[in-house]
Design a protein around this nucleic acid. Structure first.
Lengths: 212, 212
DNA sequence: GTCAATGTGTGAAAAATTTAACTATCTTTT
DNA sequence: AAAAGATAGTTAAATTTTTCACACATTGAC
């Protein structure tokens, strides 16, 4: 059995991926854990430990091949396959996400939005159709849906999530401010914006106090 | 000197706050760490340890007074004062945030949006004006601005952040996909949506493999 | 008022994470 | 081709975080 990799490590991987992408853009071919650690403001030891969770991607005396490592991390994070997203809640946030072209470069493609409001149904965003929530079941049955993004008010999120899981969706990107109670085999990633605001606020007050 | 409280603890506080808010809505007056731990799916021990970082809010044999604890956490997280937010980048995401009424209940009030696009300037969102980025300096000089939310493309984020800090802004809620290099006395909270998507993607693949 | 039950605060143990140190391997130079 | 230098992989130590366990304060029943 392969050892479980801690979520702390997983949370750091996207940052490595981003920095490696930048290095590629800069035309850098190879990099040592030490040099990368300086750029990223982490310890070289942590970089080596993190990467070694997945295997040895570097070479003693040489370092890491930037392009190779970039691609390997991409594979590890599941970016080698396309993930289709549907967005439930075509409000501002839902539309914002649908408009984010950058996600597509990572393989995350929004294929539909759903809303309860009949007025906006039939419209499209970048060619992506907005449909009625009632059409969701049919749509999921006839399309490959890998991720459902929940951007509706929290009151409705629980029920919608349950429905989605019933229709066969196994991954939820949850922007509603509730903890979804859902089967173990469904993967949930929460994005609680107000939580991050509160953390910011805490650190503001702290920083102010430290300044005396 | 008061001991430093780990960011791990700080990240958990908003969740306590949310659950306590729900308990208040349910009319619950008191709760034990044990009962709360069941609801929240964490250990009672962790709850007690976390809270004790800030002082003893409970009472042996009684538990915690829900309303009192809620208010205390609010104070700890800096919610007892109003935080004015300006949003730089009035695209979809910026507008989505400006429309989020719920933040206001926590004391976070958006007072202006700024954009480089003259076409949308002069418009308002919920009464909040959209202005030209050029007007930013003046605005900050004449208004209390506590937090700047960066929702513009990452290419511009670094320069804008520098400007903002120059104008006296000390806290940045960063949605741009870059690490801002900024003075130590400026507080930055990053919200990297694509990072969370990648984490979700990793967990999807992992979960699929576990299922055999 | 007494006593059993409850349940926090807290010191200590356990677990997890991070950092440091070392070894072995590869690269580069001469 | 050999020696010197660089650097990943890896083991060990240090640190941090989480969990456990229990003394003792408070509540509530009788």
């Amino acid at each position: 059995m392969s050892k479980e990799i801690s979520q702390a490590v997983i949370r750091r991987m996207p940052r490595y991926y981003r920095y490696l992408g930048e290095l590629i853009d800069e035309g850098v071919e190879r990099i040592s854990s030490n040099e990368l650690s300086t750029r990223m403001n982490v310890t070289a030891s942590q970089i080596r430990q993190d990467l070694n969770n997945f295997g040895g991607f570097g070479q003693q005396g040489y370092g890491y091949n930037v392009k190779f490592l970039y691609e390997e991390i991409g594979k590890i994070m599941g970016l080698s396959e396309q993930h289709n997203i549907i967005i439930i809640g075509a409000g501002n946030l839902g539309q914002a996400i649908a408009n984010y072209v950058k996600f597509e470069r990572l393989g995350f493609v929004t294929i539909a939005l759903f809303d309860v409001n009949p007025d906006i149904c039939g419209r499209t965003i970048r060619g992506i159709p907005i449909m009625l929530v009632d059409e969701m079941e049919d749509f999921i049955a006839t399309h490959k849906v890998d991720i459902a993004a929940l951007t509706m008010p929290k009151e409705k999120a629980g029920a919608i999530a349950k429905q989605l899981v019933g229709y066969g969706v196994h991954a939820i990107w949850n922007f509603a401010h509730v903890d979804l109670e859902i089967d173990d085999d469904v993967v949930v990633e929460n994005v609680h914006l107000s939580d991050t605001l509160m953390q910011l606020s805490y650190n503001i007050v702290k920083s102010r106090n430290e300044k005396k």
